[in-house]
Design a protein around this nucleic acid. Sequence first.
DNA 1: CCAAAAGTGTTCGTACTACACCCATGC
DNA 2: GCATGGGTGTAGTACGAACACTTTTGG
Lengths: 221, 221
Amino acid sequence: MYTYEYPHPAVTTDIVIFTLRDQQLKLLLIKRRCEPFKGSWALPGGFVHLNEALEIAAKRELEEETGVTDVYLEQLFTYGNPDRDPRERVITVAYFALIASDKIEVRAATDAEAVGWFAMDEIPNLAFDHQTIVETARQRLSAKLDYSTIAFQFMPEQFTLSALQDVYETILQAEVDKRNFRKWVLALERIEETGEMQSSGAHRPAKLYRVKEPGKVEIIK
Amino acid sequence: MYTYEYPHPAVTTDIVIFTLRDQQLKLLLIKRRCEPFKGSWALPGGFVHLNEALEIAAKRELEEETGVTDVYLEQLFTYGNPDRDPRERVITVAYFALIASDKIEVRAATDAEAVGWFAMDEIPNLAFDHQTIVETARQRLSAKLDYSTIAFQFMPEQFTLSALQDVYETILQAEVDKRNFRKWVLALERIEETGEMQSSGAHRPAKLYRVKEPGKVEIIK
DNA sequence: CCAAAAGTGTTCGTACTACACCCATGC
DNA sequence: GCATGGGTGTAGTACGAACACTTTTGG
């Protein structure tokens, strides 16, 4: 048991993790095994340990509950309304994560009955205020496409320009002109040809590209 | 005394509040009356009460310690390194605030031995990791000048275009072309002439302007 | 009449937009 | 040879950057 002179809230991290599959933006959710909201879908997350930095806690929870490692992670927002958890005062530091579709290897773990990727228009009712958190993350993602190189975080090691364009179109939910897109993205000088080609069906093969500095997200413009 | 089954960190809010005076960007600091860092300068802030939303806590602390009310306030970042406070694990949700120079009325209060506005190049060594927090706030402020109407939060009820230009020049630490600035800011359609003029010395009087929606901060471009 | 800040337009370059056809391949 | 997605250039426009002189006032 732990006692304090003044009341202390509990602190958790929750992670909104996106990927792209089947030309859809998808979000990782877990099915809660414990109360409250037992059986509901929720964001992966959990309590911050006493000697653990916040970002480390987020990474640990993500790995424990889903097996996902090696992701782009940034702090999103901190939610602390007094009544957001029915048990006690819980403040959650929400994180926002992206993973390339070829690195996904999901397994359900201890706290979770199940784990699943959900398309944005098929998200079930979520526990706590997780719906709000997801909306904020969604907005942040769209905004960052415009002024950073964050979209590259979704790409596998090698990819075609059409695949990259698909990422932009899917997230922004808008069509993009092919010629203008190619000019723009090549002018950024953040990707380069690998020299290899991809043949996939009855049409001209496509050049493959790679990100020059895969871990890096830069502000552009 | 308060007892929990698992260890809980303490949660505080700290506020980085800026204003502009004498053509300098200034920051409000308090001199700590209590340990740790007794006698050091620090950001105003304190513990979040059990039934208090985070933003409310930030506003309350700001008013208690400095008498400052009616400010623009937004969440900045949450800092939670395990060793950032020597007493116990303390996670702080940092806020970023701006106040118009004509609304300042500072008084020192309970937790603080003294309160003072410091120019950015005269900031003393600060308690905890407050130096880092201040730097982050400073960057956020500069960035937001470019893509939002946040600068208007510094302005009194009526102001000249030259005064507004001064705000931009001071914060960005760069000169701005007068004609281009006026064209740009008027094209935003967020300010209007009051009809009044300001005479101040041996030169042509200047038109006075007001912000159309003073509380509102919008994303532009 | 002199000093000081207010006020005002035009030109240039660049970066975004719109838009249509040929290329390489598999079947 | 035809269907499929890959790949390419140019012209028009809009926006930001550079730049200098006249106006109005107080002393």
